[in-house]
Design a protein around this nucleic acid. Sequence first.
DNA 1: CTGAAAGCGCTAACAT
DNA 2: ATGTTAGCGCTTTCAG
Lengths: 344, 344
Amino acid sequence: MVKIKDIAERCGLSIASVSKALKGESDLNPKTAEHIREVAKEMGYVPNASARLLKTKRSYNIGVLFVDETSSGLEHEYFSSILNSIKDESEKNGYDITFISHHFGQNYLTFYEHAKYRNVDGVIIASVDFKDPEVIELVESDLPTVTIDYDFNDVASVVSDNVQGVRDIINYLVSMGHKKIAFITGDDTSVTQKRIASFYKTCGENNLVIKDEYIKKGRYHLPKVSGEATRELLALDDKPTVIMYPDDYSLLGGITEIEKHGYKIPDDISIVGYDGIKLSRLLRPIITTYVQNSKEIGIQATKKLIDLIESPRTTIPDRTLVIGGLQEGQTVKNLTNNGEGHLK
Amino acid sequence: MVKIKDIAERCGLSIASVSKALKGESDLNPKTAEHIREVAKEMGYVPNASARLLKTKRSYNIGVLFVDETSSGLEHEYFSSILNSIKDESEKNGYDITFISHHFGQNYLTFYEHAKYRNVDGVIIASVDFKDPEVIELVESDLPTVTIDYDFNDVASVVSDNVQGVRDIINYLVSMGHKKIAFITGDDTSVTQKRIASFYKTCGENNLVIKDEYIKKGRYHLPKVSGEATRELLALDDKPTVIMYPDDYSLLGGITEIEKHGYKIPDDISIVGYDGIKLSRLLRPIITTYVQNSKEIGIQATKKLIDLIESPRTTIPDRTLVIGGLQEGQTVKNLTNNGEGHLK
DNA sequence: CTGAAAGCGCTAACAT
DNA sequence: ATGTTAGCGCTTTCAG
């Protein structure tokens, strides 16, 4: 590889001058600088990020901690979409990303150790167990951190507005005349807790009393589990008129179960998902769901982390709420008298 | 951060000895070495990958070039699944991965330059335009390279067996009594060319003559395009009995179109996908499709690249074929006399 | 068995 | 406006 020294020799200048020219220092003769840059380009010079890091302590590398139990976080559309936008936004700002993990050949590294080993300038954390001591070690470390969909005290975060999401769904259902609303929840995380709280609050605001048997503990991204919960709900004497699922993917398990019973969607029973995966628009009927703005979440998280890295003094680790929007699909029946005329 | 020098001082030894102890050199007193390792652990020592790289020229970093036109390669299940297994297998071997891209702040870097900038030890290339001069520059460079689903001369590759895949599908269709087989192809890539060649070859072997109007140029991952092609096929006087789609995702566009015409799947028309995405098992009817072994592809590609990196002399850049398997779903009707009794 | 010293490619004082 | 120099943290001959 051609290095600064080579350029210096070719130009008959010192390596210091070349270094300065390359990064556009002001106290160099503009012409010399320009000439150096031309020669550098001509010789195919590419800076060595590691060598630079050693001196500057800046890797221009962002760590991404993105794991779930099944280690398939990348395969869930919500997360892969966030990852994709983190990647794009990072690159736009001259950063690369590095996945933080435990594995390092034979040796085990904690998340923090891995981050240090690779000298990342900061870390974005999502889709993990935020109670994990190693995750806590990481957020409490010297490294700038941004969490997604979780709030620690004094740690910057970007969260999808789950409270508003559930609120929008329920208000929509109510406007469509639904009163018997069942809710299959996801794993017991802070996101789930917010959704449940918002569920009860919004139902209360609408003077709805929800039977306990309409609330089922479910799991995220496990259609089978939602299918079973659906079966239980369909077995009730007093069936709900609509079922809310933890996510669009799980909802598919519900559909299978519902069709197995010979019920039609939405004529016999209505369903609502969450996330707004691309597929929700592709299937027929189009799924009624709350579309999370995953792309925006990734962008905001990245911007915030870079701010934290580059301007630690002036950046306050705050909380950014990203709102989505209801997708009125075709899986919720209008039960009101005035037919089509529900609120838009 | 604690560094080797700190450990050396604490142990009253030289940094050279500590360095040796840490990597298990033999000519050190085993007891001293053990003691050093204990102290290192106690002090929370984590090596600095960049500093090491500067000396050893090894980053233990694998570059991944994974882009498509829509820059959403990560959002296609086939590719995200490959990426996921590349990541897992890399980590298992002590490597991290770095996405190779063009973007680097304001400055444009070619793929090769980016790879050099980050000092990756090798690159895995998939889902890109292999005619791109920059991709060619990369594979022809000094960097070890493995391509996925494409063959260059003398470049290691791992490819999904598309010839066998299409062959299996067609033989299955024939066994189910289908003779009028329509094929919506994908973008004009080498993968598509192989599938088309295999299509004609296998049809020939089965003495089937396929009308030209049954072959439609389509696109990968664009349900709309497949939907339009489907409409054209359904408008034919002599309709096909089955339609093969470029991928499972596109097939959904076909389903929508078919149902719009009031046709039932598979009673009125049969359909077959490609890829075997998780969803294909979740929908009802279960989709008949060829399941590509994407996980295995990622593992093989990573193993091969690491071999190339670590044993360049003894590793020959060959071609690995990864085969998948037919998923007999519920979207192909049995047209033979003997009813259910088709070949298994 | 242990240590001294050079140097990987680059940056940033500090001269000149 | 340009050059000298001292490291960043680590590995690796080569001496002792």
